[in-house]
Design a protein around this nucleic acid. Structure first.
Lengths: 210, 210, 210, 210
DNA sequence: AATGAATGAGGTTTCATTCAT
DNA sequence: GATGAATGAAACCTCATTCAT
């Protein structure tokens, strides 16, 4: 079936690359549409137009709308993990979180929108597939955070006592996710206020002492 | 039929009362449907059936689906304020929040569902009317909390220094709302863990000292 | 919920009657469309137009296209049984079958079209629901025929020996159904030819002797 | 002979042979798909995959889906004629028909599926091209049978009186085609029952006497 | 006041067919 | 010759909303 005389490896590799690029194009468009219209209000036609292709073509790359949502959750996990990694390295947790807050408030498309994050979590309540993906994603994310808390300072961690790790991760994560809601519900909240608040209460979470 | 010749005043008052009751019936049904199916997936037929009335009748009391959503936001404000009042009176903030968390996790219909809360907040990003209602509601709620923090202990408050109030309200509210997401994304989180965490970190928020 | 002062029985009976009438209207239109275009080629829009209603309304009375097909199979069974009953009473089997053949050939809409019958049977090969309905329907029909063969002449039957019944029913049914195909594939076949052929070979099927 | 630079005659002959082989490959795949899914439900992509080629390539050999169906009817004619020839030679008509019945019931892919046969006949009701092909095919088939009936026993025929031929062909063909429907609608019918029935009623069709 | 039948727009999805490579 | 990505039309179905009764 392959053209005789040419190695099959190269064309198929090229095709796979193109397919991957198309998937990416669709996901970017979908994320944008979901942010603007919401999961259910965003139509496939909408996504297709944003991606600059016909609606039917999307089904060559995704099984359906739900499949797109699932893929977006995975994207989100990767982004979130990258963000966490950035927080570690910067060792300026307050500044890092404040920046994320600011991006949420500005609806910065370079990170996952706060609204999308909320809607996605709500949807996990109803769609079992989304629930599974969300829970798995969340578990990995928590493990990342926990490992950072538990590692010794010499290894770039915080050296938090083991029996304290889960508790502090819980508080930190709640605080961050709560700020996602604040970014939406309290639009006149300034980054400075957030920084002030975090400066005051984060330190007690990050000390090595019990 | 009503007695002929009677003035219209009394019947109309009665009618108004009935209208209010009908609205309430619809809202209760709608809230239930929204929790189960989400805003967009919940159909008017669904709501009508849950309310035990015909679909057409709903349009006598609400202009449309959006109108119902708006009304539900108002309901939520009232409920949230009532919850805050309960927290004050009990003076056991940790226990109170933990209880709310538990209800969220169990999807207890006696309080606003966590999923509905999230979806509603997300929707505020898109619908200006909902945004306005949400922001107004949030403002009142924050004012309630702030007043409680600011009031002296003698008056049933916490006696927090005025310049500290906004900061602490921000942290507390973020924490609580973050727990709404935890209730969904981390289903194996126990109330005990939440209580432990809160017991450790809430006190510093509630002291009268700077 | 019902209008006070009026008995609920009458309106609901009326509603049920109307619903039944609508179902009938849809089934007639569907059968017509299926005959003209075939099962899959006939669109819901097509059926709706033929029935003189909007496409969406059909879904109030039928769960989907498959549901309509299933209902049509049941209709067919009833018609077929009625036809068999006619054959008994007339005691002119040859003339009766010849008439059916003529109606098949003329695509007489008053009986099930031969083409629809064939397509439906073919579909039973693929759709389990249709298979179940078809097999059940066929069983009942065969039992009707068998009972006629087995009953004594005094009771309006043929008095065929019991051990011969199944065999003869098989031959008769094959012959009749084969004529459905002849009506389509051999359009210049005349009723007279059919009558001649049946006159010659049916008698041996219908005698009481072995 | 084949010196380089020769005219295009031989290569084009080769090309034609290849084209014929490709058409055959497609037809085999199509028939298989039609049996499994039906005419309309079988997709071109499906056929292409079964044939082990790309969807686009099919259009080099066939004008479209309808063109394939037409070609399949012709195939069927050839197969059916071959089957008839087999029946003659075996001179065991009962056994031959019973075997065909068994293959129909088992959906044996080596002969035309009963379901495909039915669907195809039904389609003839609607598509004039298919009708023409079917009728022509049927005519040839009947002529084959008639010639067998009419030929003298010495010539390997049955020696049936000329004025009886058409009648008996009609009955025989109806019976056989009716068994195609029985194979589908009466799945618990056994080959033995069919053989018994045929043994009893076929002889009268095959005698040389009037 | 109340019903629920009816509509029409719009949603997701499939698929025959074309065409650049 | 061969591929398979791409399109566009059309399919089935759902639902907010209206309106005669």
């Amino acid at each position: 079936m392959s053209t005789p005389g040419t190695p099959t490896a190269k064309p198929s590799a090229k095709a796979a690359a193109r397919a991957q690029a198309q998937r990416e194009r669709i996901l970017v468009a979908a994320q944008q549409c979901f942010v603007v219209h919401g999961f259910h209000a965003a139509s496939m036609a909408n996504i297709a137009e944003t991606a600059g292709m016909s609606a039917g073509l999307i089904y060559r790359y995704f099984k359906g709308k739900n499949d797109i949502i699932l893929a977006i959750i995975e994207r989100q996990l990767e982004e979130a993990r990258a963000d966490v990694a950035k927080l570690h390295s910067s060792s300026d947790l307050v500044g890092g979180i404040a920046e994320v807050f600011q991006q949420w408030q500005a609806n910065d498309p370079s990170i996952t929108s706060a609204a999308l994050f909320l809607e996605l979590t709500a949807e996990a309540t109803r769609d079992p597939e989304i629930a599974a993906a969300t829970h798995a994603s969340d578990k990995v994310f928590r493990a990342d955070l926990a490992s950072w808390f538990a590692r010794s300072a010499a290894e770039g961690g915080l050296g938090v006592p083991k029996e304290q790790v889960a508790t502090r991760v819980l508080i930190l994560q709640s605080l961050i996710e709560g700020l996602a809601m604040r970014a939406i519900s309290q639009p006149d909240l300034t980054v400075e206020q957030v920084k002030d608040a975090l400066s005051q209460f984060l330190p007690s979470l990050l000390t090595a002492e019990a």
